[in-house]
Nucleic acid binder design. Structure first.
Lengths: 160, 160
DNA sequence: TTACTCATGTAACAAGTTACATGATTTA
DNA sequence: TAAATCATGTAACTTGTTACATGAGTAA
């Protein structure tokens, strides 16, 4: 819904593409997720699907007034907003420290390289994307820099 | 599996409790998730369930060698580790900026209060928890501080 | 002895995944 | 004209959710 609200009329297919292009590997944007989700949102009166007059059966999606209200309520849910969510780095951090991974030169090198690579990719993306996406990328860049900082300190502390 | 590996013998019930007490609202630790998951992991040869000799049918869980190998592979997956995951704050940030929410004094106050409250709760928790959990909390504290910093700058930038 | 916690589990439902299926339009 | 892309959708399967059900041990 955020995708549709921010960028105006879109097809379910374009929503799929947006998810597939996003850095998140947690939501793949599969057809089997998007089309049923759109159907449910239309049934719930949160989305309007306007059939276009072409032979591709294209449908443009719009938020209904109730849809806009629901999106606003979701975005202004402060308790949810400040929750950890699912942080793959944080989830593994305890294991790294506990298992001595942070004294393994080869693992450290791979992890830091992965962080730097991700950071470079995000900085590159930030140039090309629109304003809404640029904000998300900015927060992701800060997250990655925080992780790098933490990693360096944790390695220092774990050193023999 | 991480829960079992880090803290030794545990029952499925104790794993449930750990999830219920964790700050994550993304995984509730419901019985309908935990017990079937344990059954699948045992069937896959990653966990051993050792029945205790009491009338509660208590089963202590252990990682098999294959289980330890699988957990290690998961924890050392660098690409996954550096991915965004699901960040409820980041997901909403674009909407806040786009909709003028960041010029709404009352919303800003609520959001900042929620951040400060979460931060205080994490700092409090850090004292009582074990070393493995303390690391995760440390990363969460840094995440919250980063968000507060970003919010202040974003409000400044959005000011009329 | 009543209420709480420990402990295991199932049933109905929700919502994601991959893989498959179809057809229109555009581009090399 | 062949391949890629746009566009919609379904089917089988996985794994989460809430709610329900059962029973043992412990503390007020």
């Amino acid at each position: 819904m955020s995708e549709i609200a921010d960028r105006g009329q879109k097809t379910a297919f374009q929503v799929r593409k947006a998810f597939q292009n996003s850095p998140s590997i947690e939501w793949s944007g599969s057809a089997g997720a998007v089309y049923p989700a759109v159907r449910r949102l239309v049934a719930a009166g949160l989305l309007d699907a306007v059939a276009q007059d072409d032979k591709r059966a294209t449908k443009h999606l719009f938020l209904t007034p109730r849809g806009r209200a629901a999106l606003k309520a979701w975005s202004r849910d402060c308790l949810r907003s400040v929750s950890v969510g699912i942080d793959p780095f944080r989830l593994r951090s305890g294991i790294w420290l506990n298992s001595g991974d942070l004294r393994d030169e080869s693992f450290i090198a791979r992890l830091r390289a992965a962080l730097e690579e991700r950071l470079a990719a995000e900085i590159e993306d930030q140039k090309s994307e629109d304003a809404v996406e640029a904000i998300r990328i900015e927060l992701n860049i800060r997250l990655l820099r925080m992780r790098i900082e933490w990693l360096d300190e944790a390695i220092e502390a774990a050193a023999p």
